[in-house]
């Protein structure tokens, strides 16, 4: 039965290919119909959500054709003249294109490579501690920074890092060193961005991994303890495999959004002396907005980012399937 079903499932995506094997065609249609009837309740309860996607996600995507048009409000979406990729040209031909891509990928990549493992480690530690009260305190406190806006974060960073009266520089000075203008020195800016992001978001992202850890059956741990497995072995052999699906999922989704470099953070933290290492696609688009009302440019760049994200997620999905035995499907 399940074999039929998976055949039916793949059918949907490969309608044309199977069409020529006309012999079993009507039979397969019947089987598909049966399978669908069996799941009629699921279709019924999912219908509102699918309708939601159709209306609130796909109609805007249809509207996104303004990316390829010179959008004129009075002419409407269909009526506006077609200009092809012209809206994207300003971006693709920007003298900073390469730098913008590098910076964007660097920031989201670093968040993924550094931020995620730290969050996972913190989740594991929270899971392992025997002091329930302490765990609750740490958990509650560490997720609080998520609520701080970047404007406030800038104030905190300035208080710590200002070369004139920042705490860190006071310490450097007291050891006889020269104060460092962390926020305006290209060599330091990236570290500050990544570090402050990790500080702000790690606690919040542990929530997900903790929820995953909690859904692992305690019997597994008990059995391992009986077998004499050490703590580390239990983490390695039970905890990590237990949350692997979530890790894979989050990684894949983050890869899909690799060209989202964290606009608000950069926008608040960067300044002219560090543009070379701080300017990302979104800040550039923002600064370009004064020209064309952002009607089409932002949409076009949004679609461009989608194409890159799609490619990346497809490739990494295959890799994930091969190496972790998990993917998005």
């Amino acid at each position: 039965m399940s074999q039929f079903m998976s055949a039916a499932t793949t059918r949907v995506g490969r309608a044309q290919r199977s069409a020529h094997s006309s012999g079993g065609f009507s039979k397969r249609v019947r089987q598909l119909g049966l399978a669908m009837w069996k799941h009629r309740w699921i279709y019924l309860i999912t219908a509102p959500t699918l309708l939601y996607y159709l209306v609130f996600k796909y109609i805007p995507l249809y509207n996104a054709q303004i990316a390829f048009k010179e959008f004129q409000p009075l002419l409407g979406i269909e009526g506006s003249p077609w200009v092809g990729l012209q809206n994207l040209e300003g971006f693709l031909n920007s003298i900073y294109f390469g730098q913008l891509m590098t910076n964007t990928i660097f920031f989201s990549g670093a968040r993924l490579v550094l931020g995620m493992p730290i969050a996972i480690v913190l989740a594991l530690m929270l899971h392992e501690t025997r002091f329930a009260f302490f765990r609750n305190v740490v958990q509650t406190i560490t997720y609080l920074p998520h609520f701080l806006s970047w404007v406030i974060m800038f104030g905190i960073l300035l208080m710590l890092l200002s070369p004139s009266d920042g705490l860190v520089n006071e310490i450097i000075k007291s050891f006889g060193g020269e104060p460092i203008a962390f926020l305006t020195t290209p060599n330091w800016f990236r570290q500050i961005v990544i570090g402050s992001d990790i500080w702000k978001e790690t606690g919040w992202s542990t929530i997900l991994y903790l929820a995953a850890l909690l859904s692992i059956s305690p019997e597994l741990y008990e059995a391992a303890a009986v077998d004499g497995a050490s703590r580390l072995q239990r983490i390695w052999n039970i905890s990590l495999p237990g949350i692997l699906p979530v890790i894979v999922l989050v990684t894949l989704l983050r890869l899909g959004n690799i060209l989202q470099g964290g606009f608000t953070q950069i926008f608040v933290l960067y300044s002219l002396p560090v543009y070379s290492v701080g300017d990302i696609i979104d800040t550039w688009v923002y600064r370009s907005g004064i020209l064309d009302f952002q009607f089409s440019l932002a949409t076009a760049v949004g679609l461009f980012k989608g194409v890159i994200g799609l490619t990346l997620i497809m490739v990494s999905n295959q890799l994930a399937k091969r190496f972790a035995g998990r993917n998005l499907y």
């Binding site: 399940s2 499932t9 995506g13 796909y58 805007p60 995507l61 996104a64 949409t299 949004g302 989608g306």
Partner: peptide, 27 residues
């Protein structure tokens, strides 16, 4: 075992990757 499951996944993933931006939403 749900028929169409992969199709739906693909379709919603698509909306995850492509952000049309403010104007198409506003319209």
């Amino acid at each position: 075992s749900l028929p169409g499951r992969n199709l739906i996944t693909t379709l919603i993933l698509f909306t995850f990757l492509f952000h049309p931006g403010l104007i198409p939403d506003y319209l």
